[in-house]
């Protein structure tokens, strides 16, 4: 019994040590551009761009495989910043006339099912079972995943007030 426990512990410790040292010795720095781009992206790993998380999106951006308008939660503000960083032209028309929005819970129909905050990539919704949920404005990126999953349509996306970061000219309206 004792020898079994000791030997398994010993094997696991040795292997862990070897792997730990190997991870240090064989560490590969990701390209600088990729880490910088990843820092600019929202980091919520929502996957709306079609890449596996923000790291995948940053790699695709660095390789020029994805347009700078790929990130719906980032919106036009992020697209402009990315285009500036990569030195490419940006065609904001492709993003559509999408106002920046955040999620909001309608208290009268929320049943407290907890589905929305399990789905939220930024943990912006909090609450408990059979308790009303609410949204933290600072953390919400407006990705809309909660609105899709809500069984009672209590979560809706509402436009946020314009700030210097997200305001832009409206498209000219045709009379």
């Amino acid at each position: 019994m004792l020898i079994a426990v000791t030997s398994l512990t010993l094997i696991a410790t040795c292997l862990g040590l070897i792997l730990g040292i190997a991870a240090r010795r064989f560490h590969v720095e990701p390209p600088e551009l990729v880490s910088e781009l990843e820092a600019m992206l929202p980091g919520s790993q929502c996957g709306q761009c079609g890449f596996p998380g923000c790291n995948g999106a940053a790699e695709a951006l660095a390789d020029g495989l994805a347009p700078v308008t790929l990130c719906p939660p980032g919106g036009p503000a992020l697209a402009l910043a990315l285009a500036d960083k990569l030195g490419v032209q940006v065609e904001l028309g492709a993003m559509g006339e999408r106002e920046p929005t955040i999620a909001a819970v309608r208290e009268d129909i929320c049943i407290g099912c907890t589905k929305c905050f399990k789905e939220c990539p930024t943990d912006a919704i909090h609450g408990a079972m059979k308790q009303m949920h609410s949204v933290m404005k600072e953390a919400c990126t407006g990705c809309g995943k909660c609105a899709e999953i809500c069984p009672t349509e209590a979560v809706t996306l509402v436009p946020v007030a314009a700030t210097l970061g997200n305001w832009r000219w409206r498209e000219p309206a045709f009379a």
Binding site: L15, I18, L19, A22, A23, R25, F26, H27, V28
Partner: peptide, 12 residues
């Protein structure tokens, strides 16, 4: 552990 080690070494 061998698989993990091979992956680390190969990436380098």
């Amino acid at each position: 552990a061998a698989v993990q080690f091979v992956e680390l070494a190969m990436r380098k």
